[in-house]
Design a protein around this nucleic acid. Structure first.
Length: 438
RNA sequence: CGGAGUGUGGCUCAGUCUGGUAGAGCACCGCGUUCGGGACGCGGGGGUCGCAGGUUCAAAUCCUGCCACUCCGACCA
């Protein structure tokens, strides 16, 4: 992509509405534009990052055996009346009427819809386990949206729903999601810890939130230090197995957010293992049994020939929130420092003297080579001063920056900068390309 | 929903108290000098000052109502 033909409206100053660093940087980098409280348009750069995060989530869901579908944003109120939630959900639900005066709503979550889909087609335990997920926009009319896309009213969520014949099966499904989530966050360059969560009125102990540690987090987190240090399980698990041991390794160590905190247990740990921090919730998983299948009559026939309500769980990842969460966890004074996997562009070519024949030629060579190598480069071919180009590339967080200017070319060299470390080296163009492409 | 605050050009803000021809910096357009970490000079375009009423010879400024947005709190399957 040539920057002169792109749409990347960067700002030198942050709009005064933005209070936290991720919101400020997203606005300054031209990733989003606020349209109303908690409602944002995604500009090209923001959309690229959003799509990349979405893709990582998708790949890990698929690996864990979940199957992608796409459910509508607009849902029928009738389904919510069946589950009993239409009246319970309250003002957070955006209710709509169509021209026939029929009650609709903008979905805040999709248990009802997915249960309706399930019950229409699946009748036998032999079809289980099944996990259906989608990545779709949700709307919750929050009393107080804030912090940009961190707590928006409209947000992109990956929500998965598991269906099993019995509680043991549901637990296996839960474990798969638990571990898949850790792999998602690890791939995004985040250190996420699972914490015991309030399962709500359903009861039981099967609910966890996934928190990434950041000073601006909205929740207080208490955890055993070993849990924080523990790496992600990685892709090479027996995803069809019960995974109980792998999950057990992690859930046996203490961790909780403030509402579930047990100070006595926490204090009983060795002092050097006690960790308290602020956290951003980036995922929440639940096992809720027959909460929806019972009232909505989502039954399957078991091996004994008898119908039984299917056992369900749901598993959410805030995809749009993750954009902000990654920035909160990874930025510096110059701007965003993206992990390579989610960076909007893989590399930048900075032409310090657009219009100079030698510079133009060298940049075109580099741009073509990087494009051919799949590095997805952005070429800053604008007639701008060098400082503006450096600042923009750092602000939006391009991981590799290839700086080509007349002074270097006179000596047959270019500059290669790594955004994450700030390291710069001067070397011939061929060597720089080789370093980037590998 | 309780409390607090803010609305003036794309962004940051001054001007409001004390009514008198709408300002600055950045950004944008033109010309020139420049160019290796957000240059400089000259010239230019862009705002019915959130909206609606009211007071007044005269309202960004005073009064009334409304709307939007932000922060703190409560809330957050």
């Amino acid at each position: 992509m040539r920057l002169s033909r792109y749409f990347m409206p960067t700002l030198r100053e942050a709009p005064s509405d933005a209070q936290i660093v991720s919101h400020q940087l997203m606005l300054r980098a031209g990733m989003i534009r606020q349209e109303a409280a908690g409602i944002y348009a995604w500009l090209p750069l923001g959309l690229r990052v959003l799509k990349k995060i979405e893709q990582v989530v998708r790949e890990e869901m698929d690996r864990a055996g979940a199957v992608e579908i796409l459910m509508p944003t607009i849902q029928l109120a009738d389904l919510w009346k069946q589950s009993g939630r239409f009246d319970d959900y309250g003002d957070e639900m955006l209710r709509i009427k169509d021209r026939h005066d029929r009650d609709l709503l903008f979905g805040p979550t999709a248990e009802e819809v997915v249960t309706d889909i399930f019950r229409s087609y699946v009748k036998s335990y032999k079809s289980l386990p099944l996990n259906l997920y989608n990545i779709q926009w949700k709307f919750r009319d929050e009393r107080r949206p804030r912090f940009g896309v961190m707590r928006g009213r409209e947000f992109l969520m990956k929500d998965a729903y598991s269906f099993d014949i019995d509680e043991a099966g549901a637990r296996r499904s839960y474990n798969r999601m638990f571990l898949a989530y850790l792999n998602v966050y690890a791939r995004l360059g985040l250190k996420a810890i699972p914490v015991k969560a309030d399962p709500g009125p359903i009861g039981g102990d099967l609910s966890h939130e996934f928190m990434i540690l950041a000073d601006t987090g909205e929740s207080q987190v208490f955890a055993h230090r070993d849990l924080v240090e523990m790496g992600a399980p990685g892709p090479d698990l027996d995803w069809q197995g019960d995974l109980e041991a792998e999950v057990g390794r992690r859930t046996c160590l203490y961790s909780a957010s403030d509402e579930m905190h047990d100070a006595a247990r926490f204090d009983a740990m060795p002092a050097d293992k006690q960790m308290t921090a602020r956290g951003i919730e980036v995922g929440h998983i639940f096992y809720f049994g027959t909460k929806y299948s019972l009232p909505m009559k989502a039954n399957v026939t078991g091996p004994d020939g008898k119908d039984t309500p299917v056992q369900m769980g749901s598993y959410g990842v805030g995809v749009s929130r993750l954009v902000a969460a990654i920035i909160e966890a990874s930025h510096d004074d110059s701007g965003i420092v993206w992990p390579d996997v989610v960076a909007p562009f893989g590399a930048a070519v900075l032409n310090l003297r657009a219009g100079d024949a030698a510079c133009d030629a060298a940049c075109e060579t580099a741009y073509s080579a990087l494009t051919a190598a799949g590095k997805d480069p952005i070429y800053d071919d604008r007639d701008e001063r060098p400082g503006a180009k450096f600042a923009a590339a750092d602000l939006v967080g391009i991981p590799w920056q290839l700086v080509i200017g007349p002074k270097g070319l006179a000596d047959g060299v270019v500059e290669l900068k790594r955004r994450a470390t700030g390291d710069r080296q001067t070397l011939p163009l061929e060597a720089a390309l080789k370093a980037m492409i590998g």
